[in-house]
Design a binder for these strands. Structure first.
Lengths: 249, 249
DNA sequence: CCCAATTTGTTCGTATGTATA
DNA sequence: TTATACATACGAACAAATTGG
């Protein structure tokens, strides 16, 4: 009357706890695109059958993925792959708040697209070889027509084959959405460093500010599932009327 | 053969799920100092008996507190109240990394202590009345004798009665540790906003930099259990050789 | 060094409640 | 209403880590 040998044996392949192995396989399914952002994944009962584990074990795996913002559960509806770039979530990684403490959502304009090669910094951040082919995208984000933030984005050509200025300009939504629908690449996590700098030359011109103004410089690496780096982005922000926000618990 | 009525009835007092009510009571015990940071709390079996819930329900409550960094579990040893200011965790909220990407731990020096009253900003941040009595503490953090970061800290006198310059100077460890051992106040979470500014006057002098240098300005509110604000801190950082780091998942 | 007791970690499963379609 | 799906609550059995004798 005891349980038969499970389909996934904890000691067999990985030595990991069973629920960690289940979690790993779910992430694997996500990263190969079996389920896409917004999709409902199979019900708990179906997943239990698929992985040969009990409901409690499956829930523990899904619990962790939910806490990592990779899955979202809705009672009575199902469990879904998290969408990171729709509606207000669009600026999930862009927490600028204005003087009243309200979140703001600037408009994005693409002002440049070119091809290049990775220098040492980019190569290290993106995990590619020095000299590997890259794209460079330049943007301006504005509120009420006033430039607020400029970005210099670097992507690996290997990860985004045949990306063109047209695709970038004609994207229906955000860049992260373009990565997702056109390349199946989902940004789920970022790391960034912040420094203060002085506006000069090109940066001052694109921001429409006088040289000498203090700016925030943010260097961000965006990651997909399995800690795969997919984008390197350097931003310069006019923070006179907006501040960069964060919470740590 | 069914379970008797539990000591905590989900529908009785709060309408919350049982495990949320258990969690609330544990936080309550923490905030009144029944268990202090570093203490081992009673075993799962004991807590089940105390709250009249099953092991699964108790574990779900503790799981959430662990994920919030309020408790720490050690298999075979017990469950402990998280300590937020010991050893390397000392700078848990102070993620400055140097040019090599290494975390750095500057030395702290107290350079000022005074009494004052809350202006509108401080009152709002600390949840106290405008004009309420406060303390002001000024600090400098240095690496290799080179000032890197200055802080202006504001505390409510009501929360920290009889705080003196001597206590601040003679603290054995960090300020957060002083809050903890002398007043039973534990900082478990912070929120902060970041802007760029220009070094001038007093700030430039304390940092030992020339006026005109761009600085990071960080405004932080530190919270204890139950989202109680306990400290307001404005920092100015010379970020030329160090950057402010953050990760978002 | 080993053993026993304690404590948390993992896995299993059942029953019932609540939300949604 | 009914069926489905997730949420909550219960608890058993065994594994793994730690501690103290």
């Amino acid at each position: 009357m005891q349980s038969p040998m499970p389909t996934l044996d904890p000691a067999s392949s990985s030595g990991l706890p069973l629920y960690k192995e289940v979690k790993r396989q779910i992430v694997q399914a996500l990263s190969v695109g079996e389920w896409k952002p917004g999709d409902m994944i199979p019900s708990e009962k179906q997943l239990c059958a698929r992985f040969g584990v009990s409901i409690g074990t499956l829930r523990k795996a899904i619990d962790e993925l939910v806490s990592e913002n990779i899955l979202v559960r809705h009672q009575g509806r199902g469990t879904f792959v998290a969408v990171h770039n729709r509606g207000p979530r669009l600026f999930r990684f862009f927490n600028l708040i204005d003087s009243d403490g309200q979140r703001t959502y600037p408009q994005l304009e693409i002002v440049g697209f070119s091809k290049g090669r990775a220098d040492r910094t980019v190569a290290a951040k993106l995990g590619i070889a020095v000299g590997a082919r890259t794209y460079r995208i330049a943007t301006v984000r504005s509120i009420d027509g006033k430039p607020l933030l400029i970005e210099d984005i670097t992507l690996s050509q290997a990860l985004f084959p045949d990306l063109t200025a047209e695709k970038v300009h004609q994207r229906p939504s955000t860049l992260y959405n373009l990565y997702q629908v056109a390349y199946g690449i989902n940004v789920v996590r970022i790391e960034e460093g912040v420094q203060a700098c002085i506006a000069e030359g090109e940066h001052a011109r694109r921001l429409g500010v006088e040289p000498g103004l203090p700016l925030l410089q943010v260097r961000r690496v965006a990651y997909s599932y399995n800690d795969q780096p997919v984008e390197y982005r350097v931003s310069h922000i006019d923070s006179r009327h907006h501040e960069y926000f964060r919470a740590v618990s």
